[in-house]
Structure formats: structure tokens, C-alpha cells
Design a protein around this nucleic acid. Structure first.
Length: 723
DNA sequence: GGCCAGTGTCTTTTT
DNA sequence: GACACTGGCC
């Protein structure tokens, strides 16, 4: 967004940022009024829950009965509604609300107090503090109102109460406010977003000019029509019709696969085929899913097929243990009051400072109001603290002091020093665990992120500030790191997809309990179901030319494989049905063990009889209905023979596009192939046997010559080339 | 008192 | 399947 704006208006003084970043910046300048020093820490969800867990312990609440994540959600909800701890107590205190609310009424004030003592804020606080500042400090409000003369809020339908107040407060004297948004794309209700904000905009700002953007320049009429029809099933909605003059394209497909593997492999094959035929480029493709857990099978299939992909979200980079550990060191250096950071790293890597010792330290430090690092440094004996632990604490404090003094150059240099002085890297490098060598890789990535940050700050004539780097690390969503230019397939959740567009979109698992998600069905709340429908709508309208929705007969999730139920949304779509459950999954039908090359025509012929193995062909969900408006469904149940043509069209696309000259296909495992296993590391395939789903592969691992046999279809082995 | 392995629980979406 | 918590061992 920022790049686009600055390209359109070079040299203009426009600041583009998220609400959270904007607020963080304001608080660095003006936070003292709410008790924050400029070097405050920003706590992420993990930090928040850690703090809440400590509080539950201190307040003698059973953390099994009152889980930290639930309490955290309640506190966050309260903050989104600008409900202060005091107001919360009045509303839900003892004897008024539920048991959980009574606990929250105790934890919330303590939580807020602890945050302030640690000179820290959580995500919600960034907004809440600023909203309060603007409400209570009129001179500041006036100053900022005049500073930001023109404000544009994108995706206004996703603003919450706090954001609404901030925007309004900054648009009094200079009421030059422009909001863009679409109520049909409101997908953040669960985190406090209020559609009303956009619906009542005209009321809030009576001098408004409303511009309706009903013409769509992105999608084909086919895509638009089915999306438009779907969203029409939402009752709580301002009716509108989407139109386009774009040329007609392919029909939207709804495909049925056997299971997630089949689905992932087939999509991977199809993409590979479309690339090979020269029709498409990698970056034309995106795959969306409702929950991050669904990305796994795709990742496996894509790596096997050597399809370059980038993923937004997932196990977010900055949430990995090793990254969080190192960031905690940085945080502690920057903000010695940061208790959560201290407790995270004081015994990482282990230094013989255990839980009991830390309890004593905390007790003593709290008694005299010191922060933990100062308490560790001092030499007066702490009651009941073993001498050994006291010595270790002092050593740790001295090390942190030394590191703090080194905090005057680049962030990269500081990180390098931390790695060296703490022995963190050494410990990982010494470990035989493959996971740990991946961690080393992640750390290298962090270092290069730090280097980039340093360079950027240098270019802008700023000194590298640790605060700035930490802020970037905490507030950068993974989607920001997606690179449009890299030419890779993009994988992401439906939420992350908002605002983007791709020529070809695959939207996975349109199944009951996934989309709509089971949690939205639990309370039988029509509004929650409508949000799920909007989510599907958002996903579909990202597609420019080709849109494929999928579902499967069985779905493996949470470690279990269950029969699926077609999504309630199936009946609301105008799509072409395609049952691919009988299609061969040629992923594991590589030719001979020693030769990866094969002739694709031979291949296709030799397996045409394999259909017999497919005993039960699941019936296509009954979709042959007619909508009330009499519009005929384009959906049709394929006659038996059509399954095969389905094969030819999908997996067959790969066959068709294959030229006579054999092409090296990296789909199967062959003897001599080098592979990588997440746990055992590098190895060589020494044996394969069985066919299709039963195919097994035996690997000898380099590290300890151990031999393991895997089911090819299920194992996380990744081919890394032939020896 | 600390460390590690094994067990049990919960499992959406994001800043 | 990831992570917090418990219990046994050093």
C-alpha cells in the first residue's frame, strides 16, 4: 500500500500504517501521560498468556478451570469495547456475572497493573491508551487533529470501538476523513470490529459524499455472479449488486477429492502442468484455507513437486521459540522492567536457575519494588535463595549489563553478541535434533532481518534503535513479508487474503465445520454464520480468472481423519461440480525405482484400469436443486464415465501438456534419492515397495546410519535431489 | 532444587 | 500436533 501510494504521489508526506503501528508511534512520543516510558515493550499473545498464567497462580485460581487463553480473550474483548478494569468490575464483579467473569474481574485489574509496572502494553492497549489520551488530553488531541489533516481509513468495516474513537477524535477541526470499505467483507467481528461504524458513517459525518463502487474490475462475470449470489444469502445486509464488464471466463468449479492429500497433490500437479504449458506463472496462483492447519498437506505436496511457494502466517516466524527467546533478550536490554522477558531468558539456555529460586527472587524484588534484573545484580543475600542460584543470577545480570553496554551500534551486531555470550547458538549447533538445525536457520533469518533493518535506518539517517526493531518484529504481520515479485505460489488463510487478488485461486475445504467453522456453528448464532459466509465471499472475490473450490470425502484434522459433511454454502453457489474421487493420484506411481524418467503417455495408459480398486464412489452431495428465483443450476452430477474425463482434465492436464521428451518428475521416491526428514535429517532412499497408497520407502539416515521405513503418502520426507 | 521425559489437554481467524 | 504440567531421577 505504502509503495503504491508513494509511486502515485512521489515526494508527498503521507504516512501509511496500521492502526497499531500508528498508535505505537504516538505512544512513544506521548505515552508518559498514561504511565509509559518511550522504551515500552509490546506483548504478543504468548506474552499476555504467560502473564495471565502468573497472575492466576498468584491469585490462587486454578489455571485448569480458568484457562489463560479464555481469560485473555475476555480481557481483550473488554478492551475492544473500551471497558476499563474499573468499569469491568462494576459490570461483572463478584455476584453479578458468571464465575469466569468474576475471575476476569479480579485478573484484569491486576493484569493491567503488571503491564504498567513492566513498562509494557499488549496489542489492544496500543489502541486503548491512545483512545484515552485523545479523550482526556484535549491540547494533544487538537495538536494531532491539526497535524493529520487528511485521513483515509481503508477497510473501515473492520474498525473497532477504540479505532473509531481515534479516527473521530482526529477528525474534528480538520474533518477531512475518507473511509473505504465494504460491509460484505467484514470478517473481524470476533475481534471487536463493528460493522455499524461503516453503516452509520453518514450519520456521524453528515457532510459526507458517498461514492458507490459497484463495478468490479477484477473478476470474470462467472466468479462475480456466484460470489454475489452467495452473499445474497446474508440477511443482515444492505443489498447491492456487483457488476462487471470483464470478458467471460471459465466456470467456477467445486471439486470433490478423496482426502486432503489427494486434494493437495492434485492441485500441485495442476499448477505444475499449467506452468509447464506456459499458460501461467507461479505468482498467478494462490491457495486459501480457513485454518492454518490445512497448509501442511499443501506444503508437503508443493515441496515434492518443487513448486516454489510462500506462506503467510502459519507458525508465524516471530512466534517461534528461538526467535522469541532472542527477542526477549533484546527486550530485556531495551526495557529492564520487562518481567516477562526476564523470566523467559533468565534460564535459557539453562543455567541452573529453577522455578523455586525464581519464586524467591520475585518475592524479594516485589517486596522492595525493584525490577528483577536489579534484584539479581545486588549482593545482599535473599532469604531462602540457595547460594548457587544467587551466584548464577549475579552472573546473568552481569552478562545482561555487558550486553546492554553493547547496545550502541547495529541491531545485528548486538544479536551476534547475544548469541555468542549466551551460548544459545552453540547449544543448538551441538544438538543432533534436526529441529534444532532448523532453528539455527531461523536465527540466521532473524539476523538478516536485523541487518536489513539496520541498513534501512542507516539510509534514512537514523541510528538503529532497538525499540524500532522490536516494534517491527512484533507488529509485522507475515503477510507484509510476502513478496509479489518473487514469483511463487502464495498460501494463506482467508483472513489474510483480504485486499489481495490473484488470477487463479484455489479455496480449500469448503466443508461443514471448517467453512463454516464449527465454532461459528456452536452457538447457533446466525450472525456468526453470516461472518463465515462473508469470509468465503472475500476468498472468492480475490480470484480474477480461475476459481476452484474444493472439498473432500475424508478430512484429517487435529490428528484424526473424519468423514466430512458438505458445507451449507454449497447450496448457495453456482458452480460446476467435479467429482474427482475416482481419479488416480499419480503422485506415487513413479516408474521404476532407478529411473525417475518416464513417458507420460505410457503412464496414463497403464493406469486406466486402476479404477477397479476404487470400491465405493461417494455420492456427490445433492446439489441439483433450483434456486427460488428459478435460475437453473449449472451444477450437474457427472455421469459415471465423466469421472474419467475429470481425470483427464485435472491430472490429465499434466499428461496432456507433457511433451514426448521425458520430463523429470520429482513426485515419487526412487532409490538413491537424497531426502530430508524433519526429525532424522538427511538420508538416502535405499528401498521402495508397494504401489499407490501402500507405497513405502526405506531411508538410511546420514547422521547415525539408522534405517526407517515410511508410508510414502504420509511421511514428511522431502526429496532434495539425486546424488 | 533442577532437569528431563512422559502425559494430558485443547485445537479459528489477527494485531 | 503443539504445548503446559507432573513426576521421577540426578
Amino acid at each position: 500500500m505504502s509503495e503504491r501510494v508513494h509511486t502515485l504521489l512521489p515526494g508527498s508526506r503521507i504516512w501509511v500504517s496500521t492502526f497499531h503501528r500508528f498508535c505505537a508511534k504516538l505512544l512513544r512520543e506521548h505515552g508518559r501521560a498514561v504511565g509509559l516510558n518511550p522504551n515500552f515493550s509490546i506483548y504478543d499473545t504468548g506474552d499476555q498468556q504467560q502473564l495471565i498464567r502468573q497472575l492466576l497462580h498468584d491469585l490462587n485460581f486454578d489455571s485448569a478451570h480458568f484457562p489463560a487463553n479464555k481469560i485473555n480473550a475476555r480481557i481483550s474483548q473488554a478492551k475492544n469495547e473500551l471497558l476499563s478494569p474499573e468499569k469491568y468490575i462494576t459490570r461483572y464483579g463478584e455476584g453479578i456475572g458468571t464465575h469466569l467473569e468474576a475471575v476476569v474481574a479480579k485478573v484484569y485489574p491486576a493484569y493491567q497493573k503488571r503491564l504498567l509496572e513492566a513498562n509494557a502494553v499488549d496489542f489492544d492497549d496500543l489502541l486503548v491508551h491512545v483512545a484515552m489520551l485523545l479523550a482526556e488530553q484535549d491540547p494533544l488531541r487538537v495538536e494531532l487533529d491539526q497535524r493529520y489533516r487528511f485521513i483515509l481509513v481503508d477497510e473501515y468495516q473492520d474498525t473497532n470501538q477504540a479505532q473509531y474513537q481515534i479516527v473521530t477524535a482526529l477528525s474534528q477541526i480538520e474533518p477531512n476523513l475518507c473511509a473505504t470499505g465494504d460491509p460484505d467483507q467484514s470478517i473481524y467481528g470476533w475481534r471487536g470490529a463493528r460493522i455499524e461504524n461503516i453503516l452509520r458513517f453518514e450519520h456521524d459525518f453528515p457532510a459526507v459524499t458517498m461514492i458507490r463502487l459497484e463495478e468490479n474490475f477484477r473478476s470474470t462475470p462467472e466468479i462475480l455472479k456466484t460470489a454475489d449470489r452467495l452473499i445474497g444469502y446474508n440477511i443482515h445486509r444492505k443489498a447491492k449488486r456487483l457488476k462487471t464488464d470483464n470478458v467471460s471466463g471459465e466456470a467456477v468449479e467445486l471439486r470433490l477429492y478423496r482426502d486432503g492429500q489427494h486434494e493437495a497433490n492434485s492441485i500441485a500437479n495442476e499448477i505444475a502442468a499449467l506452468i509447464e504449458s506456459g499458460e501461467r506463472r507461479w505468482k498467478d496462483f494462490a491457495v486459501f484455507y480457513r485454518v492454518n492447519a490445512l497448509s501442511r498437506s499443501l506444503e508437503t505436496a508443493f515441496s515434492r513437486q518443487r513448486i516454489p511457494y510462500q506462506m503467510a502466517g502459519g507458525v508465524a516466524f516471530y512466534e517461534r521459540v528461538e526467535i522469541k527467546d532472542l527477542l526477549a533478550y533484546l527486550r530485556l536490554i531495551e526495557n529492564p522492567q520487562d518481567r516477562i522477558a526476564f523470566l523467559r531468558v533468565v534460564n535459557t539456555p539453562t543455567r541452573g536457575i529453577g522455578k523455586r529460586s525464581l519464586e524467591k527472587l520475585v518475592q524479594w524484588a516485589d517486596g522492595i519494588g525493584w525490577n528483577l534484573i536489579d534484584a539479581s545484580r545486588q549482593r545482599v543475600p535473599i532469604p531462602a535463595l540457595p547460594k548457587r542460584a544467587a551466584v548464577q543470577l549475579r552472573t546473568f545480570a552481569a552478562m545482561v549489563d555487558e550486553l546492554s553496554q553493547a547496545n550502541c551500534g547495529t541491531v545485528e551486531a548486538l544479536l551476534q553478541l547475544i548469541l555468542k555470550r549466551t551460548g544459545y547458538l552453540q547449544q543448538l549447533e551441538a544438538s543432533p535434533d534436526e529441529m534444532d538445525s532448523q532453528r539455527v536457520g531461523n536465527i540466521e533469518e532473524l539476523i538478516s532481518a536485523a541487518r536489513q533493518y539496520d541498513e534501512q535506518e542507516h539510509e534514512n539517517d537514523h541510528a538503529s534503535s532497538l525499540t524500532g526493531f522490536l516494534e517491527t518484529a512484533t507488529l509485522t504481520q507475515d503477510i507484509d513479508s510476502l513478496d509479489e515479485s518473487t514469483g511463487t505460489v502464495t498460501l494463506m488463510t482467508l483472513h489474510a487474503a483480504k485486499g489481495l487478488e490473484f488470477p487463479c485461486v484455489y479455496l480449500l475445504a469448503v466443508e461443514q465445520n471448517i467453512l463454516p467453522h464449527e465454532r461459528s456453528l456452536r452457538q447457533n448464532d446466525a450472525r456468526q454464520l453470516e461472518e463465515e459466509r462473508r469470509l468465503l465471499f472475500v476468498g472468492m472475490t480475490r480470484a480474477e480468472e480461475k476459481l476452484v473450490l474444493t472439498h473432500t470425502v475424508r478430512r484429517e484434522l487435529h490428528g484424526r481423519s473424519l468423514s466430512t459433511i458438505p458445507s451449507v454454502f454449497h447450496d448457495e453457489l453456482t458452480v460446476e461440480l467435479r467429482d474427482l474421487t475416482g481419479a488416480e493420484d499419480f503422485q506415487f506411481l513413479d516408474s521404476t525405482d532407478h529411473d525417475l524418467r518416464f513417458d507420460r503417455d505410457d503412464f496414463s495408459n497403464s493406469h486406466q484400469t486402476d479404477d477397479e480398486h476404487e470400491t465405493s464412489m461417494p455420492s456427490v452431495p445433492e446439489l441439483e436443486k433450483h434456486h427460488a428465483d428459478g435460475e437453473p443450476w449449472q451444477q450437474r452430477k457427472p455421469p459415471v464415465g465423466q469421472t474419467r474425463s475429470g481425470l483427464r482434465l485435472t491430472t490429465g492436464a499434466a499428461l496432456k501438456s507433457g511433451t514426448k521428451q521425458s520430463v523429470e518428475l520429482q513426485t515419487g521416491f526412487a532409490i538413491g534419492m537424497q531426502v530430508r526428514h524433519p526429525r532424522y535429517g538427511l538420508g538416502t532412499v535405499i528401498e521402495t515397495s508397494g504401489l499407490s497408497k501402500n507405497r513405502t520407502v526405506t531411508v538410511e539416515f546420514a547422521a547415525d546410519a539408522r534405517r526407517e521405513c515410511f508410508v510414502a503418502a504420509k511421511c514428511p520426507l522431502q526429496p532434495i535431489g539425486l546424488r
